[in-house]
């Protein structure tokens, strides 16, 4: 599904070079739920953003369904509609109502009719449990509700993969559960997911595989049982000690 080979992303700014992602190679299979964890600044977000082309690669390759993102002729917009993304800050469109948030890209990108798009949008909104808010503007929703709308918005494009960048980090604690619940349901339905999160409970419960990153490098990967009980690497052990 997604294959990254020696992925590197370097930021050059103000005279210093940051190797945000430094040679990550991994293979994410269809239906797999991969959780990426690691200390702050370790390059998790950057790695995720590379996966849908929001960051341009410095070197290496990303294959999504066999298509090389780094290839000059690849149409990124075409790839991106197959890869949904959920952001830490929700990034809903504030000038559009909830339902318009879900309908817009379906019409503009997928060229669906308004009726079809709205039908799909309503189905997804009731799936994430906020059908009654479809005419509200995002600003009037709670954080948890906004994030669920954002998930529904990404799902409306029928993506093959969903990327989550710390979807619950900007939420009040009492709202974290409702968003995780939606994500767990998605995982059960067999969606391929890459999730950056600090929610270790979620990782343990849902992940098929855990990737541990530090300083841009993929330090350790394995099943949650392996990772949370007997990590090989010293750095992973230190990190777990801090967060658990």
């Amino acid at each position: 599904m997604i294959k990254t080979i020696d992925l590197k992303k370097t930021f050059i700014g103000r005279g210093q070079t940051v190797h945000a992602v430094d040679g990550v190679s991994t293979h994410i299979k269809p239906g797999e739920v991969v959780v990426v964890i690691g200390p702050s600044g370790s390059g998790k977000s950057t790695y995720l953003r590379c996966l849908n082309g929001l960051e341009e690669l410095t070197s290496g390759h990303i294959y999504i369904d066999g298509v090389d993102l780094a290839h000059r002729k690849t149409d990124l917009n075409k790839i991106r509609r197959e890869v949904g993304m959920v952001f830490q800050q929700f990034n809903l469109f504030p000038h559009k109502t909830v339902i318009e948030n879900l309908v817009l890209a379906q019409k503009v990108v997928r060229k669906r009719s308004t009726a079809d798009a709205e039908k799909k949008a309503r189905a997804l909104l009731s799936k994430v449990g906020i059908a009654e808010k479809e005419q509200e503007y995002p600003i009037r929703l709670s954080g948890g509700q906004q994030q669920r709308v954002a998930i529904a918005r990404a799902l409306a494009m029928d993506p093959k993969v969903m990327l989550f960048d710390e979807p619950t980090s900007a939420l009040d604690p009492e709202m974290v559960g409702e968003v995780l619940e939606v994500m767990k349901q998605l995982a059960r339905e067999g969606m391929t997911m890459v999730v950056v999160t600090h929610e270790m409970g979620f990782a343990r419960e849902v992940a098929d595989r855990v990737l541990f990153m530090d300083h841009g490098k993929l330090v350790e990967e394995g099943t949650p049982e392996h990772f949370f009980t007997a990590p090989r690497e010293e750095r992973a052990r230190l990190f777990l000690k801090q967060v658990l």
Binding site: G84, M85, N91, F93, V108, A154
Partner: peptide
């Protein structure tokens, strides 16, 4: 905010579409 353009792009919109609609 930059997130608006990123959200639009992550949905597969082109830069022009994102400009016009978002």
């Amino acid at each position: 905010p930059r997130g608006q353009m990123e959200a639009a792009k992550s949905l597969g919109m082109t830069t022009t579409q994102a400009m016009v609609h978002i």
